[in-house]
Design a protein around this nucleic acid. Structure first.
Length: 270
DNA sequence: CCCCCTTTGAAGGAA
DNA sequence: TTCCTTCAAAGGGGG
């Protein structure tokens, strides 16, 4: 059933491409959920994409989809459109960064008892593991059961941003080139390469990320990034404090030295 | 077993 | 409006 929702959302997007000019600027796209009105590049923000989901398309607006999307009629997936989008209009991005393969958006059937029921990769149990066999439930209080039920609620992951999509695509290549395996080191390289990309090249990923966010919002209308706060164990605040000797990340370093985050290199961190 | 590291960007809350 | 915090992915390292 979820698949149909994905296909529907996908078809929706195919019918309602980004506004004219979208994707021509590599600047981050306007937040779909909110608030900021200016991109880090200083490029005027595009209008919210919700506008493109209004009539005349018969598909209900996001607010209408809430809680009722599973009842939407099945739509035939338009795979030709999908492939043309990912390998054509979106450049040479591999399918690994497509909506259908991106774990946070790749949906499986979650219909209970359905023979083909496959858990949704984006909706993962908090532990990421299968549940153990229940022990004596009679020993649990109602409050405990409630708390446990709450804790076991599946997690809907955040949609990937442009850089995350870029990382997903380029990681294997960097690993092959550098024979490195540590993700921290790989990510540093990817961060530098990201800044070395032209705006046109980055635009592909910003556009893809925008569509990811849009589809995510379609699929989970009431979802908030805040929902996942606290689900990860975080390191102590003390460790987050910057030391005077450690230059920190290039981002922080640029901020400290008053450099442009988008165009300036951070010498000490390079 | 599970958190840390490391990156950028999005989002939300506080000031 | 600005600043800060958290979380998305990834997988080796280390407690």
């Amino acid at each position: 059933m979820y698949k149909e929702t994905v296909y529907s959302a996908f078809n929706l997007l195919m019918h309602y491409p980004p506004p004219a000019g979208a994707g021509q600027h590599p600047s981050p796209q306007p937040p779909l959920h909110s608030k900021a009105s200016q991109s880090p590049h200083g490029v005027p923000q595009l209008s919210p994409l919700y506008e493109h989901f209004s009539s005349p398309h018969p598909t209900p607006a996001p607010a209408d989809i809430s809680q009722k999307q599973v009842h939407r009629p099945l739509q035939t997936p338009d795979l030709s459109g999908f492939y043309s989008l990912t390998s054509g209009s979106m450049g040479q991005l591999p399918h690994t960064v497509s909506w259908f393969t991106h774990p946070s958006l790749m949906l499986g059937s979650s219909v209970p008892g359905h023979p083909a029921a496959i858990p949704h990769p984006a909706i993962v149990p908090p532990s990421g593991k299968q549940e153990l066999q229940p022990y004596d439930r009679s020993l649990k209080t109602q409050a405990e059961s409630k708390a446990e039920k709450e804790a076991k609620k599946p997690t809907i992951k955040k949609p990937l941003n442009a850089f995350m999509l870029y990382m997903k695509e380029m990681r294997a290549k960097v690993i092959a080139e550098c024979t490195l395996k540590e993700s921290a080191a790989i990510n540093q390289i990817l961060g530098r390469r990201w800044h070395a990309l032209s705006r046109e090249e980055q635009a592909k990923y910003y556009e893809l990320a925008r569509k990811e966010r849009q589809l995510h919002m379609q699929l989970y209308p009431g979802w908030s990034a805040r929902d996942n706060y606290g689900k990860k164990k975080r390191r102590s605040r003390e460790k987050h404090q910057e030391s005077t000797t450690d230059p920190g990340s290039p981002k922080k370093c640029r901020a400290r030295f008053g450099l442009n985050q988008q165009t300036d290199w951070c010498g000490p961190c390079r």
